[in-house]
């Protein structure tokens, strides 16, 4: 059974820095409830006994590149779409931790 309740949902909102309205919360919980039921039906229908855990969902391996420096972009190009910049920095609202 997929584990979701209003406490976990609140914790996730905090971690993701999101604020859902009451009606959105109800929608999300309903969504998970439906998904859980569907997944539950899958897991009871498929026998996974003695099946090794997958390392990755894609049956392919990565390609690697050599350790060579290539400069393809200038700072100006990269910052062209930035809302705010200052002295070559991206500028964001002040963060206090």
């Amino acid at each position: 059974m997929l584990y979701m309740n209003s406490d976990i949902l609140r914790r996730l909102q905090k971690l993701n820095q999101l604020k859902l309205t009451d009606s959105e919360e109800r929608d999300v919980l309903a969504f998970f409830e439906k998904q859980s039921a569907e997944l539950e039906s899958l897991s009871s229908a498929i026998d996974t006994e003695n099946v090794e855990r997958m390392v990755h969902v894609m049956p392919i391996l990565t390609v690697v590149r050599e350790d060579v420096v290539v400069k393809n972009f200038t700072r100006e190009e990269l910052q062209a779409g930035a809302p705010e910049t200052m002295d070559g920095y991206w500028q964001v609202p002040r963060l206090v931790e």
């Binding site: 705010e84 200052m86 070559g88 991206w90 500028q91 964001v92 609202p93 002040r94 963060l95």
Partner: peptide, 11 residues
């Protein structure tokens, strides 16, 4: 952290 503009600058 830039006190003058009260913003954070990212590198």
């Amino acid at each position: 952290h830039d006190d003058w503009t009260d913003t954070t600058l990212v590198d």
